Amino acid sequence: MISELDSFGWESMGHAYGPAGDVPGWLTGMASADPGVRDQAFSHFYSAAHHQGDVYPCTAASLPFLFEISDSPAAPDRGSVIELLLSIGRESLDMDPEGVYFTPDGTESRAHVDALAVIRGRAEAFVRWVKDIDPLVRRPAIEGLGLFPGDTARAVEVLRGLLPGSGTVERLLVVRTVATVALRDGCGRTRCGCWLAECAGR
């Protein structure tokens, strides 16, 4: 999909500082082998396409490419890309799902709804990533599994299965994420609560 970057109408979209024609270069830069190029790409994207947490149409349009980078074993900094996915997703969750927002040029936007649709439609990726050999990939993926579960019951089972053999940091992340699921999903609250109480009693 990265090869299709130029086929998107980026110039017709905008970010905090104008037309989004520079977004493809930042997305490509995030997968660069050069740490300096990657740092600059992330910095520019956060500054313009995700400015102060804003979610623009170009932000939502970037998501399939961010998922592709995160899925590529050859990408050198997948954990940071998943962190960016989480940031976009968290901000979208916090916005009014029925609300209409406006881009800097005054265009009406529901990009937050589009962003959540993309992330939720690819929730299975988080299941793969929580089992990755790289802890910097696993840790943000654990949080993502709690925020955007495609199937809540399955997400909780996957999370619970991670607990044995995990280190302290990841064990804490698993427990916190199951609590997040309980708060966000009333249907799974009792199941999650019982398991958390069981963990506390161990």
Results as ranks from 00 to 15, higher is better:
Gly121His: 09
Gly29Glu: 13
Cys58Gly: 10
Ala61Pro: 02
Leu86Ile: 03
Pro104Val: 03
Glu11Lys: 13
Arg202Gln: 07
Asp132Pro: 00
Pro164Glu: 07
Gly144Thr: 11
Ser80Tyr: 02
Arg120Val: 07
Gly146Ile: 03
Val156Tyr: 12
Ser43Cys: 08
Ala41Met: 11
His44Asn: 12
Asp105Gly: 06
Arg154Thr: 15
Cys194Arg: 14
Ala155Ser: 15
Gly165Asp: 04
Arg171Ile: 11
Ala41Thr: 12
Leu93Met: 09
Ser72Thr: 00
Asp105Ala: 10
Leu66Ile: 02
Asp151Thr: 08
Ser32Thr: 12
Val169Phe: 09
Val37Tyr: 06
Ala74Trp: 02
Ser32Asn: 08
Val118Arg: 12
Tyr56Gly: 07
Asp71Trp: 00
Val174Tyr: 14
His51Tyr: 15
Arg120Leu: 13
Ile133Ser: 05
Asp185Val: 05
Glu83Gly: 00
Phe148Tyr: 10
Ile133Glu: 06
Asp132Leu: 01
Ala75Phe: 04
Ala115Tyr: 04
Val118Trp: 12
Ile69Val: 02
Ser92Asp: 06
Glu83Phe: 00
Gly14Gln: 03
Asp71Phe: 01
Val81Phe: 02
Leu84Arg: 01
Glu124Asn: 11
Leu173Arg: 15
Gly161Met: 08
Ala16Pro: 01
Thr103Ala: 07
Asp134Val: 00
Ser3Met: 14
Lys131Glu: 11
Arg78Thr: 05
Val181Trp: 10
Glu170Arg: 09
